[in-house]
Design a protein around this nucleic acid. Structure first.
Lengths: 148, 148
DNA sequence: CTAATTTCTATTGATATCAATGTAATTAGT
DNA sequence: ACTAATTACATTGATATCAATAGAAATTAG
């Protein structure tokens, strides 16, 4: 027989107030909503914007490095590409030199959508800087980078 | 006819390096994996741990305030509760005084699972503090809170 | 005291996320 | 060259996330 287990309420308060994972997930959801709302007129989510922006390179990258850059699982990237391919914004082609690799590139339509999104990103991000104490933005980014 | 649109590569670099939303999503994914891995032995994800911990209260809370605390959509909370109910770790009952409301509470089994998870959380979180420069943890939390 | 409004939650459909697993292509070891 | 190990990616199944919508219960306006 197992005794009844009681976690002290003080432990709950401690976790609630100090858990960095919780705080980051909370902020991630809030920021996702903020950018999703702002980008909705051009038909992009925050994640799609970041992904497509990371594909705007002189040379089309393969999937692995893109997944690493975004700190996401490779299978997540595979799934995330599908709606973008379906809309004709991203092309996925095979690398002739190494047939395991896929090369990811933006279509002209994809570039147009992304270009329309840039000013939205700029204004949204600017409003975000106002929400943080002066100078915290840079340090915040460095701290976040230390976690990823 | 539409001209070809070219977003300067420098813009891509700027967004990649400065976008707070991207940085937070990256950190959120990395921390989620870290805690998911650590909590796997007790059968919890980071989100389930945070949710269940937020239910460890003297009085069972309704859904609205819990969703607000976690900064998540109410429909997300409804979905997140389902696997926990199915496993018999969380009870969802009706409030007799206001039949619209559901009261969320942990079962004894749920409390036992949560109790087993607490030491895992403690050690994982401690290792996390080592990854950050001294004193950054508190300020990081405050900055994140300003965003949510 | 009824009707309109507000509050609280559930359902549906789409995308996001990851673990586990499988497969094809390349590389390394012999 | 042949086999073993590695690399790069896809598929499946489960959970997470939110918008849009709908429903029921409670509150408020009149």
């Amino acid at each position: 027989m197992s005794n009844a287990v009681e976690i002290p309420f003080s432990t709950t308060i401690l976790v609630r107030d100090t858990c960095l994972c919780l705080h980051v997930q909370r902020a991630a959801r809030a920021l996702a909503r903020l950018f999703d709302d702002a980008l909705r007129p051009v038909g992009l989510t925050n994640g799609q914007f970041s992904l497509m922006m990371s594909l705007n390179r002189p040379e089309p990258p393969p999937m692995g490095p893109v997944a690493t850059l975004l700190a996401m699982d490779q299978t997540t990237l595979t799934a995330a590409l599908k709606p973008l391919q379906r809309r004709g914004w991203v092309n996925v082609t095979q690398n002739a030199k190494d047939k395991r690799r896929r090369l990811l590139s933006l279509t002209p339509e994809g570039k147009a959508v992304l270009a329309a999104a840039v000013p939205i990103w700029e204004s949204t991000h600017a409003s975000l800087e106002d929400a943080l104490p002066d100078g915290d933005m840079g340090r915040l980014r460095r701290d976040l980078q230390a976690l990823a």
